[in-house]
Amino acid sequence: MFSNKLQALRKEKHLTQQEMANILNIAKTTYSSYEQGKRMPDAATQNKIADFFEVTLDYLHGRNNTPKWANKKDSNDLKRFLEDNDGTFTYGGDDLTEDEKQKLKIAMTQIFWDRHKHD
């Protein structure tokens, strides 16, 4: 999740991996390994990344997938979307566990934001 968010944020700003490495004062190979999911930056570097992109650490780690462009109406639309699709979900005739329901909510939230992007 972190690697995907990092890559997407970098591309949004039209930066190369080398430019990001320079901003973070690290080697390009180190930065590249972050985007490939081979390494995780230390806490100080994660904070630098979050500050640079003006996002939270929760956003970088996929705990809060609300895009920074989202406004209050967008958030209300998401809430309505989740409520409208909050049926009783089953798999093989068995109700989903609370953990499975939470994972499904995360997936539905990501789909909502992907389709709800502002042009």
Rank of each mutant, 00 (worst) to 15 (best):
M1F: 05
M1V: 05
S3Q: 13
N4Q: 14
L6T: 01
L9K: 04
R10Y: 00
K11E: 10
H14W: 06
T16I: 06
A21D: 06
N25D: 13
I26L: 13
I26D: 06
K28N: 09
T29H: 03
Y31C: 02
Y34C: 03
Y34N: 01
E35H: 10
R39C: 02
M40P: 00
M40C: 00
P41H: 04
P41T: 01
A43E: 08
A44L: 15
A44H: 10
A44F: 13
I49S: 02
F53C: 05
L57F: 03
D58H: 07
L60G: 01
G62L: 00
N64A: 08
T66R: 12
T66Q: 15
N71K: 15
K72V: 09
K73W: 02
S75P: 00
S75R: 13
L78Y: 03
F81H: 13
F81T: 04
L82I: 08
T88W: 12
F89Q: 03
T90Q: 11
T90V: 09
Y91S: 08
G92M: 09
D94Q: 15
L96C: 04
E98A: 15
D99I: 12
D99P: 10
Q102Y: 03
A107F: 06
A107M: 06
T109I: 08
W113S: 02
W113P: 12
R115K: 12
K117F: 03
